[in-house]
Simulated scan of single mutants.
Amino acid sequence: MSEVRLAAEPRTEFGKGAARRTRRAGKIPAVLYGHGSDPKHLALPALEFARVVREHGQNAVLTLDIDSAGSELALTKTVTTHPIKNYIEHVDLLLVKRGEKVTVDVPVVLTGEAAPGTLVTQEADSVQVEADALNIPEQFEVSVAGVQAGAQIHASDLSLPSGVTLVTPADHLLVVVAAAPTAAQMESTIDVEGAGVVEQASESGEAAAQG
């Protein structure tokens, strides 16, 4: 993962009202913490930071130019997004040093198509690894191309780059490939569920009549 340089401004106002004013000015409220130092309250340029997350993922490493205070190396730790309007509300940044190992969650992305007549279920969408702060994988690709029913893929099956160590348990289940239900099985399931609904309604009617 490449290092990205980004301008940042110190924040002197706090609270919900101050955060709203920061966002209206086209910036994102952020907090930089770590290594026992006092938290630094910052404002990041919204468009530039959104581009960094889009192009480099949420584990992006930033070189923050903080006005006259110099620069700091930081890992994007938490990105809070508005649940409805989908804009970035707040960012937590972790202060890191070159050569330092960090523990992060890395997305798992499936590629390819399994064998015909199968159903692929992704049981986990990320795994936790330890890596150099400047060499965090953006994602792990897992190919299910041609995989037959009955196959399982675990964390231990991932191909890890040099210097990256798996923190998630090796037997953690990532993907299950099962036989897809037949049309007859689907119809049978619908019939059983429908019968259950009718029976439940009938019982409710009887109870109402008795009452």
Rank of each mutant, 00 (worst) to 15 (best):
L174F: 05
S202G: 10
P107F: 09
V147N: 07
N86H: 15
S126E: 12
V102D: 14
A74W: 05
S2G: 14
A184M: 08
E206P: 00
P10D: 01
E203G: 06
Y87E: 08
T12Y: 00
L95A: 13
L64E: 02
A25F: 08
A19I: 04
P10V: 01
A179I: 11
R51Q: 15
E123L: 09
L119N: 13
K101L: 11
G194H: 10
A209W: 06
A74D: 10
V96I: 15
A19D: 02
V147C: 04
R98M: 11
V147H: 12
E72M: 09
G196S: 05
A183F: 06
T121H: 14
V192H: 01
L42Q: 02
V177P: 08
V176K: 14
T22Q: 02
V79Q: 08
D92N: 06
H172D: 09
R98C: 01
F140K: 11
A209V: 13
E9R: 11
G99C: 04
D65M: 04
G17Y: 00
I190R: 14
L166W: 09
G194E: 02
I66V: 15
A207D: 14
H82M: 07
E141L: 13
G26H: 07
S126D: 09
R51Y: 07
V102G: 13
D92S: 05
E199M: 05
Q200R: 11
V52K: 09
A60I: 05
A170G: 02
V31L: 02
P45R: 02
I84N: 05
Q148H: 10
Q152T: 13
Q210R: 10
P169V: 11
D171C: 00
S68E: 01
